[in-house]
């Protein structure tokens, strides 16, 4: 059976265009080319430098953000493809001036050193609880998409366990 592929092609342009994103609950518009990654849009165009660029290749996890609540790598996401999705970055974790419990737990457990992977770790750690993968024997595997070169891993696990237990105890 032959399928007739007759629909008119979409217009595609490599020129800068206006892209409307929702970042941390706020609508923003920026003029960017299609090749701009979500990561670079956040860092270079929106001034949201909390999201980090460690490899730009999907191998380190420093650029982890949420798209519609699910954790993704912003270095491998085109900003233009982020239209229509709710993007959340580390800057959106706080509730008013109040630290998210995971942020507080990271400080309390010394779950970072240089701090460069930390925003990505936090975005994964909070997502992990949502995903229901925070059992003692799951945390390490489900946090393995975020490299910490300072190797604060045991402390990161401690912080996650604390937040998990506090949430479960309420």
């Amino acid at each position: 059976m032959a399928i007739h592929v007759g629909s008119p092609p979409l217009e595609g342009t490599s020129k800068a265009r206006t892209v409307a994103l929702t970042v941390n609950g706020e609508g923003v518009e920026l003029r960017i080319e299609p090749r701009v990654s979500l990561l670079d849009a956040l860092r270079e165009h929106l001034g949201l430098t909390g999201t980090k660029k460690g490899c730009d290749q999907g191998t380190c996890g420093a650029c982890t953000v949420w798209s519609d609540g699910r954790r993704v790598l912003s270095c491998l996401t085109l900003a233009v493809a982020g239209e229509g999705h709710e993007i959340t970055t580390v800057e959106g974790l706080q509730d008013g001036g109040e630290l998210h419990p995971m942020q507080a737990a990271f400080i309390a457990h010394d779950a970072f050193q240089c701090g460069y992977c930390t925003p990505g770790q936090l975005m994964s750690a909070v997502a992990l609880l949502e995903e229901g993968r925070a059992a003692d024997d799951e945390i390490a595997e489900w946090m393995s998409g975020n490299i910490c070169r300072c190797a604060a891993y045991p402390n990161i696990r401690d912080a996650i366990r604390e937040v998990r237990d506090a949430a479960g105890g309420e």
Binding site: I3, H4, S7, P9, L10, S14, A81, E83
Partner: peptide
Amino acid sequence: PFAYARADDVDTAIATVLARPDGEFLAGG
């Protein structure tokens, strides 16, 4: 640089890729 288009249905997606010899689908990326 590359051009970008976003398709809502399969036929349009295919037609759009076919319209250019250097057209490709973009899924997870």
